[in-house]
Nucleic acid binder design. Structure first.
Length: 448
RNA sequence: CGGGGCGUAGCUCAGCCUGGUAGAGCGCCAGCUUUGGGAGCUGGAUGCCGGAGGUUCGAAUCCUCUCGCCCCGACCA
């Protein structure tokens, strides 16, 4: 796989062959909050028109939400590829027999959605893919020289949570990136683990998030090396404790893995005030965290049960060492909003924004104003800038409010007064800073 | 899985206690006036009151069952 990130071609939801046609987003925004939503990200995703609930914990992704999901997915994919992982795609529906090999068919419990097909064969909607990937590996890799391997896919999962909540943050159906590493020995497995650890820090950073790796309970999957990655947000589900040095390290461009892994950072259930590396009280931060990633080394748990064995250097069979590495892609959409919003709406980091620019025509129907908007929209679109053009025949206040709610990084406001004076207004959604400048300077700023 | 709550117009909700045949605000449609931060006036459309059964002359309202959804707690990317 290539080491360079893939440049994603600009998407347009305009009709094919007519890239300049403005599009009225489907559906319209909501002025009032649907009563089902409690936390900010859920409310804002409903109001902005990103998702609609289909059943408890199951959502339809509307055009605006899907764009964000795809952007996140792309960043995750690029960083996985860069780390040397190879993408494949496993199915959502799996055979119960495969899960009996690992013993998890009986162990998993009611969280697993079990299905029977027309022949009464037992199937399941995959909550994770260790069994399937181990089968793929064991059937296709027989010699140690083909190691190491890291394989991943980005696929919908289903876990029949007793109580889904918080919108996409804790749905039953969710999009997850899961990687699986295969190594000949523990030293190799540790290298794979570190490669993923490093990739995760880069991935979350690119999304504008501070994600702190926490020593985590290994839970049901079992193992020794494991970290949870938590995004700090007031509404996080877990309490976290961490050394303030994380903030200092995170502010730096370079990630020092060894320095990071020595620091104290744990979720509240693992917090031990008497631990050796607990920082002094003035250096110990407490916060709320949203778990967006979880990585495990679990040795030969699945490879042994399922016979994933390669011929080692001396010809004798070696059971491979494995790890798995998850990122909650759909959860990240909610997590990013939790970390980036204000009373007016969402404030997207540019890297994951559904559009980079929101073009507001303050007076649709005014010839000069329409012409100025259409000209600048065409230029932005041709330059590959994702632009949402609001040319609705509505009052200015409605458009401002909607644009703030949707939260695109840049708002380009064009009205008749400005057009007459040769200026447009450029507003930064995050800082709130506005500046008046010529259309050409605005273009240069957005394109350059 | 324990505990609590809610299903009435596209959305937010009132009406239910104390049965008498459907309401408000916002949104939507039309017209006029407005027009740089969710406009004003006038007129209009919209409901199997979640579903089934029961009580009653009569049920959104009372009773039973059922389905869906939300919240708190225990569990998870």
């Amino acid at each position: 796989m290539g080491l360079n990130p893939v440049k994603v071609p600009p998407q347009s939801i305009s009709s094919p062959g007519n890239l300049h046609a403005p599009v009225h987003l489907f559906p319209a925004t909501l002025k009032e909050t649907p009563s089902e939503a409690q936390i900010a990200s859920h409310r804002l995703m409903l109001r902005a028109g990103m998702i609609r609930q289909a059943s408890a914990g199951i959502y339809t992704w509307l055009p605006l939400g899907l764009r964000v999901l795809r952007k996140i997915e792309t960043i995750v994919r690029e960083e996985q590829n860069r780390a040397g992982a190879q993408e494949l795609l496993m199915p959502t529906i799996q055979s119960a027999d495969l899960w009996r090999e690992s013993g998890r068919y009986d162990a998993y419990g009611k969280e697993m959605l079990r299905i029977t097909d027309r022949h009464d064969r037992e199937m399941l909607y995959g909550p994770t893919n260790e069994e399937l990937i181990t089968q793929i590996f064991r059937d296709n890799v027989k010699r140690y020289r083909d190691l190491p391997k890291i394989l991943y896919h980005i696929q919908w999962k289903f876990r029949d949570e007793v109580r889904p909540r918080f919108g996409v943050m804790r749905g039953r159906e969710f999009l997850m990136k899961d990687s699986y590493s295969f190594d000949l020995d523990f030293e190799g497995a540790k290298r794979s683990y570190k490669a993923m650890f490093d990739a995760y820090l880069k991935t979350f950073k690119r999304m504008g998030l501070t994600a702190i790796p926490m020593q985590a309970d290994s839970g049901a999957i079992g193992g020794t090396l494991t970290h949870e990655f938590h995004v700090l947000a007031e509404t996080g589900e877990s309490g976290v404790f961490y050394d303030v040095a994380y903030d200092e390290l995170a502010a730096k461009g370079e990630i020092d893995l060894d320095a990071l892994s020595r620091l104290y950072a744990v979720t509240d259930e693992k917090h031990d005030p008497t631990a050796a590396n607990v920082p002094p009280p003035e250096r110990l931060r407490t916060a709320r965290g949203i778990e967006v990633g979880h990585i495990f080394y679990f040795g030969t748990k699945y490879s042994k049960a399922m016979g994933a064995v390669v011929a080692g250097p001396d010809g004798t069979p070696v059971t491979v060492e494995m790890g798995s590495y998850g990122i909650g892609v759909s959860r990240l959409v909610g997590a990013i909003i939790e970390a980036n919003h204000d009373e007016r709406g969402i404030r997207w980091p540019e890297s994951v924004a559904p559009f980079k620019v929101g073009l507001i025509n303050l007076k649709s129907g005014d010839g000069a104003c329409d012409a100025a908007c259409e000209d600048i929209y065409a230029k932005l679109t041709q330059a590959g800038i994702d632009t949402l053009y609001d040319d609705r025949d509505d009052r200015a206040g409605v458009k401002f409010a909607d644009m703030d709610l949707i939260g695109l990084p840049w708002q380009l406001v064009i009205g008749p007064k400005g057009v007459a004076a040769g200026i447009v207004e450029l507003k930064n959604r995050h800082s709130g800073e506005k500046q008046e400048l010529s259309a050409d300077s605005a273009l240069a700023k957005l394109i350059g």
